[in-house]
Design a protein around this nucleic acid. Sequence first.
DNA 1: GCCAACGTTGGC
DNA 2: GCCAACGTTGGC
Length: 163
Amino acid sequence: MSGSTKYWLLKSEPDCFSIDDLAREKNKTTCWDGVRNYQARNYIRDDMHKGDKVLFYHSSTNPPGVAGVAKIVKDPYPDFTAFDPKDKHFDPKSRQESPRWFMVDIKLEKKLKRFVSLDELRKIKSLEGMVLLQKGSRLSVQPVTQQQFEIVCQLADKPAPAE
DNA sequence: GCCAACGTTGGC
DNA sequence: GCCAACGTTGGC
């Protein structure tokens, strides 16, 4: 084994696939298919490893925010939905012999004790470097530091801040 | 539904 | 390789 645990934030639209959907999956595990952005692909293909930890983020919902923690349980492998002409994420340019898109499997570790909203994250000084909080940032796969990961988890264990 | 910020495409 | 046009993301 090489390398140490890395930390990530994965966005999902809950109308499409929520943390509760993940909880209902067999073994609470799903393949993270459908990523069709090169920067996100590079993170998945080149930097993700089994054992890495994931913040599961709900986007395009009100409010957006972090809903839970998951773990990568399978190393990156070709996203087979790109090979299927009937699939919504079909990409004819991705070939079996040279796959263009990759995915990992993730397993739910826990739903956070409470939902931590984007608005709340923005107010935390020590999180201002998070990729998520940068202006114009819309990558669906983002690296987070171990410290950022732990701060978000600890926030969820405390009561929600008063308005 | 609006629109800013990005990413992708394709003509040249 | 430039860049205008178009498409997408995602907070608001």
